[in-house]
């Protein structure tokens, strides 16, 4: 029987499904991986005063801030995807979220140009000093789903370092990361949605992220269509119903599924990523010319929670 461990972090539930010989050792390793997720939560929680993100926001407009290697690596990924996606993925949406009433009561300085605060060029990374600098006061990182993916990547690294290689990890059922397949199987099958004929992804040493425009209706700004924001229009996106991305890392998968729903083109992500988009509520489309990690049958999926089928 696989061992399942779980924890609450980043406003969602993370779960690890582990296979191996000795349960006490598996549990010990799994707990170490969960601890890594909790550390990531502590660092990247935009809502918590004591997170690294809040610290960076307080230091905005000042000198660079030295970062731990994990946060620095994640911000590098953010900047890279922001450029490749032509700004449809943006890690600096904090001020926009405040403006739309999706964060606390903090008021933006009316004289401050929102576009300036959202400009990714204002996030300066120094690889030599392992530091980051937000160049203008008021700038604020909000990593959203990519933080969840990055936490899964870190947890998976702990598992591998400690010799646990057969595992499936997921965060909030919207991001899954697979290591070696379950015994006797070729891959972990992850179903994208609750319907019988929902698309399935086949994962081995890869990650899947699904972003949906309508998965959090309760938190939408009035009149908007999605909690995923189109940074170029400063409002909820209306571009796609959903997008699923398979990538080597969960952080990359999360960043690109967000960017696709926000409005980037399927040609924007680098080669090697598997893309599945849902332009309307009753159709899924494979992006042409991409590796196919998916099995699709006709379906009417409108909401995309993942259902892991480990064994």
């Amino acid at each position: 029987m696989p061992l399942r461990l779980a924890c609450q972090a980043m406003g969602t539930r993370f779960e690890l499904v582990l296979a191996g010989q000795r349960e006490d050792q598996l549990r010990a390793v799994g707990e170490l991986a969960l601890e890594e997720i909790q550390i990531a939560h502590g660092r990247w929680n935009a809502f918590a005063n004591d997170s690294v993100l809040s610290h960076l926001a307080r230091c905005a407009g000042g000198p660079p801030v030295e970062l731990d290697p994990e946060t620095f690596d994640l911000l590098q990924t953010c900047v890279r995807v922001a450029k490749q996606s032509r700004g449809f993925f943006n890690p600096l949406l904090g001020p926009l979220l405040h403006k739309l009433g999706l964060r606390d009561e903090t008021k933006l300085d009316p004289a401050e140009d929102l576009g300036t605060l959202l400009d990714v060029k204002g996030l300066v990374l120094d690889p030599k000093g392992h530091s980051a600098q937000l160049t203008r006061p008021g700038m604020q990182l909000d990593l959203g789903a990519i933080a969840k993916g990055a936490a899964l990547d870190l947890a998976a690294r702990v598992l591998v370092d400690e010799g646990v290689t057969c595992a499936l990890l997921h965060g909030g059922t919207s991001t899954a990361l697979a290591l070696d397949p379950p015994p006797g199987k070729d891959a972990w099958q992850v179903v994208i949605g609750p319907e019988k004929n929902a698309p399935r992804a086949h994962l081995v040493h890869s990650a899947l992220s699904v972003s949906a425009a309508n998965s959090r209706r309760g938190s939408l700004p009035r009149g908007d269509h999605s909690h995923i924001l189109d940074p170029h229009r400063s409002r909820g996106t209306r571009h796609l119903q959903a997008a699923a991305v398979v990538a080597p890392s969960a952080a990359t998968a999360d960043a690109w599924s967000t960017a696709l729903v926000a409005g980037c083109l399927p040609s924007d992500p680098p080669q090697g990523l598997g893309l599945l988009t849902q332009p309307t509520s009753d159709s899924w489309l494979l992006a042409p010319g991409r590796p196919n990690f998916f099995h699709i049958e006709p379906c009417t999926t409108t909401t995309p929670p993942l259902t892991a089928a480990p064994f």
């Binding site: 010990a28 707990e31 170490l32 400690e162």
Partner: peptide, 9 residues
């Protein structure tokens, strides 16, 4: 909720 056990080979 934690077993307090650290993995060791």
């Amino acid at each position: 909720k934690n077993s307090w056990r650290t993995p060791a080979s």
